[in-house]
Design a protein around this nucleic acid. Structure first.
Length: 553
DNA sequence: AGCTGTCGCGCC
DNA sequence: AGGGCGCGACAGCT
């Protein structure tokens, strides 16, 4: 398969390099060219940043099947322990180190003094290909960069498509809970009334309940001694102000994070368009720098409603990370418990623990590094039962405490201790030995979780990479605007918007893609990745049978 | 007026 | 002292 390296030239020109042969065209001619090449057999487009180039193509209804995202992969390879870093050095290499993600609002914009504007994609691509080839883990790294790049395509496609959003439903919800939209700077009526209740009950007329110091002082005057104003702290207090205050905080949060201003900013043309940053977090999980896509609150999901005659297929993986741990550690006992829809119940049936809750506490405790309490106690017992799985996270923690880096299954390396982006404490080595010890332990908890969370992110990348292709093929017979498409992704959950008639087929593909991802990553050991799939008109109706209400990781 | 740090909240 | 995030508001600073 051919690779075509795409670089910018001054004056809205583009340089394309294919097998060393150079070809220059105007930026405006690029979409038509890409469309033609795609229909002739999908080359791999190699560019500095998918978020820079792809929106331009999508706007022209051009879809790309595969790409290689040089910025993402450069960062990945820089940190991959199985890579000889020196192979990445060379012309413009330092600029790739510094390259920031494209600006969502204006992806083609570079700051005037930025030498990154005209980076040579062909030169960097050659280095990356050679670097991967020379690695003893080249097969895994190849899979990782392909999955990561495909994820970047999916991210741009999801932002382009957007989650179907009924502003009228959302506004009706806000009006019901908060009252009519207030003028700028004012509180909605029902919120203001709750604030009055709080003021009256605390006998503090001028109180601003949004101010923690004021609120703490007023609580203290009323004889309520609390260390903070957290909801859980307040709930434990027996005083008439607690109920309206907690209610106030809840509604104030809704108002400020998903209120009318949020609609104005993030919903356009009946679509909610969050901006994703693939691998935006250190573990490889995606982050989001717009719209709060990572905290898509349950409260407003009722506004996510499929178009007429369309549905949303909502799917999430039950206990993704424990299953990933079973797969990557090759723990046959845990993999056996993972057969079926509920891994924790599987552990109970296995006789390893008495209750589902114990199983969950023990597993999460092992993955997060719990040292005390119920969770810490469960870990000890489960280690005997599932030595490979629990040993893997334990070893990752010990490596971190020794100051060593760890890696995911496919070879992503974690940030080094004191290396900057971990625990943002720039060149401030802890002063005394106690501090140093705490710091190392904290790093050990980070590396412990990194291996599982990071490999979980790799599983998820493979899942959506495969799924987007399956969905594309599924809609191949129909018109372009009737194809099922991904509209949302969050760690272990996807939402597909599709014509109602295709719902069952989409559900089957989502499930098949999950199996394929598992087989791709854990070929030696079969691990099930069962999904909760719902076909719904509104996101709010997506149930999650088999999973408890609290956060399952 | 801007910036940065912290809290408290939401999601996984 | 259980991991990873983003965001809005406040507070205190320049």
């Amino acid at each position: 398969m051919s690779r075509i390296q795409v670089s910018r030239l001054p004056d809205e020109r583009v340089r394309l390099v294919e097998d060393g042969t150079e070809h220059v065209m105007d930026l405006t001619d690029l979409p038509a060219y890409v469309a033609e090449r795609e229909s002739a057999g999908a080359p791999r487009w190699v560019w500095d940043d998918t978020a820079r180039w792809y929106p331009l193509l999508l706007a022209a209804d051009v879809r790309v099947e595969r790409c290689h995202d040089l910025r993402l992969c450069h960062r990945l390879l820089r940190r991959a322990p199985a890579v000889d870093e020196r192979l990445l050095e060379g012309e413009e290499s330092w600029l790739w180190d510094r390259l920031r993600a494209a600006e969502p609002t204006d992806p083609m914009l570079f700051s005037a003094d930025d030498a990154s504007e005209h980076l040579r994609a062909d030169i960097e691509d050659a280095r990356q290909v050679a670097t991967i080839e020379a690695s003893p883990e080249s097969a895994r790294l190849e899979l990782l960069v392909a999955a990561e790049s495909a994820g970047a395509l999916a991210a741009a496609e999801m932002t382009h498509a957007g989650v179907p959003w009924r502003v009228d439903v959302h506004e009706a919800l806000l009006t019901e809970l908060l009252g009519p939209r207030p003028p700028r700077g004012a509180r909605p009526r029902l919120l203001e009334e709750l604030a009055d209740d709080v003021r009256r009950l605390l006998e503090t007329p001028g109180l601003n309940p949004d101010s923690r110091p004021h609120l703490l002082a007023a609580l203290r005057r009323a004889g309520i001694e609390v260390p903070d104003t957290r909801r859980s702290t307040l709930r434990a207090v027996d005083h008439p102000v607690v109920e309206p205050l907690v209610r106030y905080k809840q509604l104030a949060h809704l108002f400020s994070t998903n209120g009318w201003a949020w609609i104005d900013q993030w919903v356009s043309g009946g679509r909610f368009r969050p901006v994703y940053q693939p691998a935006g977090s250190a573990t490889g999980r995606w982050s989001s720098n717009g719209g709060g896509a990572l905290s898509f609150p349950v409260q407003v999901r009722s506004a996510a409603v499929a178009d007429d005659d369309w549905v949303l297929v909502v799917a999430d993986v039950a206990q993704l990370e424990p299953r990933v741990l079973a797969g990557m550690s090759g723990d046959r006992a845990l993999a056996r418990a993972a057969r079926g829809a509920d891994l924790y119940q599987g552990m109970v049936d296995d006789g390893a623990v008495a209750t589902r809750q114990d199983a969950k506490l023990g597993l999460l405790g092992a993955m997060y590094g719990a040292t005390s309490g119920e969770s810490g106690r469960m870990v000890a017992g489960l280690t005997r039962r599932y030595p490979a799985a629990f040993g893997l996270v334990e070893e990752a923690a010990r490596a971190g405490e020794r100051g060593q880096v760890v890696r995911t299954l496919l070879g992503r390396g974690c940030p080094a201790l004191g290396g900057g982006s971990w625990d943002e404490s720039p060149d401030a080595p802890p002063a005394d030995l106690d501090d140093q010890d705490r710091h190392r332990r904290a790093y050990g908890r980070f590396t412990r979780n990194f291996v599982v969370q990071g490999t979980g992110a790799e599983w998820a990348s493979c899942w959506i990479a495969d799924l987007r292709n399956r969905l594309w093929r599924l809609g191949a017979d129909g018109p372009l605007d009737a194809r099922p498409h991904l509209v949302f992704f969050l760690h272990d959950e996807v939402v597909v918007h599709c014509p109602a008639a295709l719902a069952d087929a989409v559900a089957a593909e989502v499930t098949a893609a999950a199996s394929a991802a598992g087989a791709l990553l854990f070929r030696e050991l079969a691990v099930d990745f069962p999904l909760n799939v719902s076909v719904v008109r509104s996101y709010a109706d997506a149930g999650k049978p088999g999973a408890p209400a609290s956060a399952d990781v």
